[in-house]
Design a protein around this nucleic acid. Structure first.
Lengths: 162, 162
DNA sequence: AATTTGCGGATATGATGTATCCTTAATTCC
DNA sequence: GGAATTAAGGATACATCATATCCGCAAATT
């Protein structure tokens, strides 16, 4: 059970977008260069964010991406689900239906007890991600990343932001 | 991020094994028939349980599997990790290292803030699974499964248990 | 008009989950 | 002792999906 690398990419890109001044856009090209990622494939991840309405886009030179909402109104789960999908990690295939002892036409009243527990764990995972806002990440980064690197990075970004 | 179907199989099989009388074994063949699963492939899942020391095995006719510990001392995470592996769902590839603004030879003091949050969610998932014992599942099933089906199923199982 | 951008489709490749088959060694039963 | 049964593990095939690249289109800027 491994998350796509696009999840990591999308989270880091959103953290950068969160630091953009109001109204500016940053292109796929700049985000790919900044993170050392394949531009064309990163583009797919960003398209997922766009389809989920997490980011706004604009075309042409000086075009690119910006957050569609304040970073305090976007949480980790929003981003993760945008690229990874909203499907649960456990799918119940109802193998108990194959029990040869079952009377014909028997129908379960509840979802399988095994599935309920697996889904509960899935929800715990989602809850944790839901509780962390993108702005929280930015706050942590701004504390942990050395001030000089933080400054030079955004200088680099702003030089490329349309 | 989808769990293997073997996870579902292993959980259901363990629930059956938990109902076996002391010292009896149940074969792959019986477990496969009971759940309508491909015998040869289910065998791989059971081998994983064996390698994780969750079950004991014995060879020959009347051979098969039984729990290695009481069902109250086996939790969901034990079983899930046995077949799914213990690797975290999120792997940090340290793409921040590619930041062109980084001074050469720069080394991070902490793991990436993004990774820490993703790992926290992963731990929440694992904690939930760790808190549910196999005996809890059996308790739930014995309440929810109609008494007659429950009885006839174990009659079916005992007829095949060595 | 030329360039740059996001977007979607088509395609290729590698890894992994799913599934089957076969051999080997251990155990039971006759 | 011999036949049957079992778990274990290796080899192989196939399908699905993540990864990655390329192309053409429409929109926006210069």
């Amino acid at each position: 059970m491994i998350l796509k690398s696009q999840v990591e990419w999308a989270l880091h890109c959103c953290a950068i977008l969160a630091g953009l001044p109001e109204g500016r856009y940053l292109s796929t090209k700049a985000l790919a260069e900044l993170h050392g990622l394949p531009k064309e494939y990163l583009s797919k991840a960003l398209q997922s964010l766009s389809q989920a309405s997490l980011v706004d886009t604009t075309l042409g030179p000086s075009g690119g991406y910006r957050l569609a909402r304040p970073s305090s109104e976007i949480n980790f789960l929003d981003i993760v689900e945008a690229v990874e999908g909203k499907a649960r990690s456990f799918t119940c295939t109802n193998i108990r239906d194959n029990n040869p002892c079952r009377p014909a036409g028997y129908c379960d009243s509840k979802p399988c007890a095994v599935a309920r527990i697996m889904w509960e764990a899935d929800e715990a995972w989602r809850d944790t991600l839901r509780r962390v806002r993108l702005s929280d990440l930015v706050g942590t980064l701004s504390e942990e990343v050395p001030a000089e690197l933080w400054r030079s990075t955004f200088e680099w970004v702003l030089k490329r932001a349309g």
